[in-house]
Simulated scan of single mutants.
Amino acid sequence: MCLTLSHVTKRYDDHTVLDAVGFNVAAGERVALLGHNGAGKSTLMKIILGLIASDGGSISVLGTEPGSHDARTHTAYLPENASFHPALTGLEQLGYYLRLRGESPKQATFLLDRVGLGPAAKRRIGTYSKGMRQRVGLAQALIGQPKLLILDEPTSGLDPVSRREFYVILDELAAQGTAILLSSHALTEVEARTDRIVILSSGVMVANDTLANLRRRASLPIRLQISAQNGKADEVARKLSGQRSNGVMVDLVCNSQEKLARLGDISALGSLVDDVDVIPPSLEDIYSHFSKRGNA
């Protein structure tokens, strides 16, 4: 395992910020760390990075202690608001960081190209947008081919195209064996681009599983959206005891155990039905479900 946490606890005075949190991140795995503001995500990341100490439990970062030389050498971090010297160009700033890491500054051009900043490499960072500065931060995080990548709201300030390109880079890193721990409030983009979900609620880990397994455990309603033949929506709705939504659409709601039987009912209608979409609970639904359980 690249990252192993067991019963990690952190307290400030009489307030418990993290309460016996434990999970693993394997090589090549993309894990999303979710939670409301104040849930303990940033504190946990600081502990993993060795910036602050935990009050209990154990942590192994690439087989060593957080903050050790080996852990720092092979771990990269991208904060939510990356900050750089405004008078330096992107090329100069990245070259500086490469020299600090004992790497050739000639790699700066390649890294900036990889994050889509090649055309702006010789512009001063003071002229960059927030999204462009965030991409400089990602380029910096890629120095040295990290084995563990810690990302705190990494797509903040990025436009939709840049967000998609960002996740393509993460997919490539994971395919090469990099372990990725990513904190984000953008649940819709995380839903399709991570392997496992960890949810914190008031410092307590309330979920740690794949999205598919969390859906099964939550047992939230599934929506079946049926497209009926023209003029047949009322008949389809009546036969299925469904709700006509608009035009030719009919909506059904069922639980996961009923899904196959209800699909059979729909199939039995034959030519009355043009198509059917199965809409499972979204990650937002799952997150809300487990967060409420944690606060109960």
Rank of each mutant, 00 (worst) to 15 (best):
V250E: 05
G270F: 11
S202Y: 01
K292L: 14
M1I: 08
N208D: 15
I286S: 02
A237Y: 10
S162G: 12
L44H: 07
L187S: 07
V17L: 11
R101G: 08
G144V: 09
V248H: 11
A179L: 07
L138S: 02
R293M: 14
L100S: 08
R11W: 05
F23P: 00
K46W: 07
N24Q: 14
S83F: 11
T73G: 03
A87P: 00
N213S: 13
R123C: 05
S227W: 08
P86D: 12
C254R: 06
E284K: 13
A233E: 13
D274I: 14
M1W: 00
D171W: 00
P146L: 09
S241A: 15
T64C: 12
G247P: 09
V17N: 01
P160E: 10
L214A: 08
D275G: 13
A261D: 13
S54F: 00
L51K: 08
E172P: 02
T43L: 06
R124N: 11
E65H: 12
D251Q: 15
S201D: 05
S68L: 03
I48E: 06
L3C: 10
R193L: 06
D265W: 04
R101W: 12
L142F: 04
G131W: 01
S245G: 03
V190T: 04
A26K: 14
V8L: 10
P66S: 10
G22D: 06
L269S: 11
Y287M: 03
D113L: 05
V17D: 01
G63T: 10
I279A: 11
H85M: 12
V273K: 10
G116R: 08
D113W: 02
V253C: 08
V206C: 07
S245E: 15
L260H: 11
V198I: 11
C2Y: 07
G242T: 07
L34F: 09
P146R: 06
S271Y: 06
Y167A: 01
G57N: 06
K130I: 04
S129Y: 05
Q225M: 13
A108I: 07
G116I: 07
G144N: 10
V278I: 15
T188V: 12
